[in-house]
Nucleic acid binder design. Structure first.
Lengths: 350, 350
DNA sequence: CTGAAAGCGCTTACAG
DNA sequence: CTGAAAGCGCTTACAG
């Protein structure tokens, strides 16, 4: 039925070793031989059996990506970027969803799937700093995010504190002195996006000589539009004065916009709003949502390359490395910038 | 380093065959033996090598999902659903992005990845009816969507015409007599979501004795918020009277909402708007977007189960089957319904 | 530069 | 019910 290297070798009149050399672009094959082998491959429609190759070489050419949920835009866009980069490196990506569940996160790095992927990119949301010892696994693992630092594995993270500080600095530069923060969390013993971004908020205010009003520091039930909307509604209901909002992610920022509009507050005239993540939706919101671009493509590229390095590593293992990616403040309508989506010079055909 | 079945067999004092029987839940193993084998597996941290199993059994336990782009919400949510269902069937999912590119779509079913996945779920957007012969591939393939019908493979599709007709019927029931459609395309020789949904629009109007005004039938440069917004802006600029809009997907519907608001039209008072797809964002838009729920979970479940059936198929191959899933009209604020996101009875901790 | 052969770790007839 | 052995399709030392 399906043909093997032996069939190709027979048709081409060479040994399987030579076929293997051609397939894997090894040197020392005469051009004429290479041509004959290629023709035989074409003729038979031969495709290497990846299981056999994997068994022999100890590699499958597949990496795992463990994220909470693809229906969260941030992770869909991250997965999109990771799949692109991995594809360009000749790797397939098995996407696993943990649902932000601790057990599922543990399972994804338990090794149950170990002999199936060559390594895993892992974005935890349930595991935290106290679980750092669980990351000492016997296979290549690259950690994403800011739940766990100083672990035994390579780690790609963003400048959460600095970026949050810059976002609040942007609101300050617009003259906003009463900026609320939505999505805060102040667990002393946890390091998370929430904690780091809140730290950036505080340091920006402190640098401007402003005392943060505790009433303006709000948690959200979940980091979604719904969570942001509800937190904002409560804040408005309580009657606090405010002229700016820093939503710790764009999803909540979209909910904040809605709550403000429902309450008849004008954005950005009455209240300027900035989010974090730069998901596509923010660009199309009314008004469009200013945000922090955390450099998702750079994160994906860096993470895949670190993982590939680890997979290719022979005996000598280099020490764990932490890479911090850059960021950019994206000014849109919600802080007085212009919408990016303008009419095209040439209208599309109607 | 990593242990094998032989190690387990040695520790447990049984043959590898028995270990295999235990791992694969085969009968005819005494409880006591089973316990000993399990203990040995535990002790060694043994995990089956999936490459070896794949080589021997001819299966990898991985299926492929080929979609345009995960950053499009519809496909992120579809992938989310497929990964959940596949996981419950013990299968991993390699996600491949075609970018809606013809060559990439062909590559995804060319068999280059064949011996790597047990089968593929394929959602084409570039290939069309004329490419139907290309689907006659020597591995399990399940087609999603409405680009190609009557092909040689199993096919899962939704009731596009009926659902679109019901959406427009909903607008008619609100008394809207001048409903525009956004995202139309009228290629006589192509069957696509656009063509089918447009057909539903026409049949609903016809059933109500209304002549469709060609000026209200609009294409969009792309099926995105931007495309919807631009198409709506042009429609408004041209000064046509209208009181309803049927956006052929939610992404365009979100852009339509924005264009209407920019133009000072009230939704739904002046113009009622309904989309198609039921992506999460529509629920959080201001106003929330009415839509057609095409039953994404049902699509995912059906597609995975058909693929599993094909993979497990021995000699006798049953004929290709087409499954059509159900739909539901979701009435939200943009057509006068209530927002679904209400305040929680119990506020989250602040 | 090329060929014959071993072996990666499983599963599965085949004997017993 | 259990064991010994073949073989899935590759890659890679090892000879030549």
């Amino acid at each position: 039925m399906t043909s093997t290297m032996h069939d190709v070798a027979r048709i081409a009149g060479v040994s399987v070793k030579t076929v293997s050399n051609v397939i894997n672009d090894h040197p020392h094959v005469r051009d004429e031989t290479r041509r004959r082998v290629r023709a035989a491959i074409e003729e038979l429609g031969y495709r290497p059996n990846l299981s056999a190759r994997g068994l022999r070489s100890g590699k499958t050419g597949i990496i795992g990506l463990a994220v909470p949920e693809l229906r969260e835009n941030y992770f869909a866009e991250l997965a999109d970027a990771v799949i692109r980069v991995a594809g360009s490196r000749g790797l397939g990506v098995v996407v696993e969803q943990t649902g932000g569940d601790r057990d599922a996160e543990l399972r994804s790095i338990s090794g149950a799937r170990l002999r199936f992927t060559d390594g895993i990119l892992f974005s935890p949301v349930a595991l935290g700093q106290r679980d750092v010892h669980l990351l000492d696994v016997p296979f290549p693992l690259v950690l994403l995010g800011e739940r766990i630092f100083d672990g035994p594995t390579d780690h790609v993270t963003m400048r959460n504190v600095d970026a949050a500080s810059a976002a609040v600095g942007h609101l300050l530069s617009l003259g906003r002195r009463r900026t609320a923060v939505i999505g805060a969390r102040d667990d002393a013993d946890e390091v998370s996006s929430a904690v780091l971004r809140l730290r950036g908020y505080r340091s920006a205010l402190a640098a401007a000589g402003i005392t943060a009003d505790p009433a303006l520091v709000r948690s959200a039930s979940e980091w979604t539009p719904r969570g942001g909307m509800q937190a904002m509604q409560r804040l408005l209901d309580e009657g606090h004065e405010l002229d700016g909002v820093f939503a710790l992610n764009d999803a909540m920022g979209l909910g904040v916009l809605r709550a403000l509009q429902d309450a008849g507050r004008r954005v950005p005239e009455d209240v300027a709003v900035i989010g974090f993540d730069d998901v596509d939706e923010g660009r199309y919101a009314v008004p469009s949502l200013s945000t922090v671009d955390p450099g998702r493509d750079e994160i994906a590229r860096t993470a895949v390359d670190l993982l590939v390095e680890r997979i290719d590593e022979k005996g000598t293992r280099r020490p764990a490395r932490t890479v911090t990616t850059g960021f950019r403040i994206v000014v849109r309508e919600s802080t007085g910038g212009r919408a990016e989506s303008t009419r095209p010079a040439v209208p599309a055909t109607a």
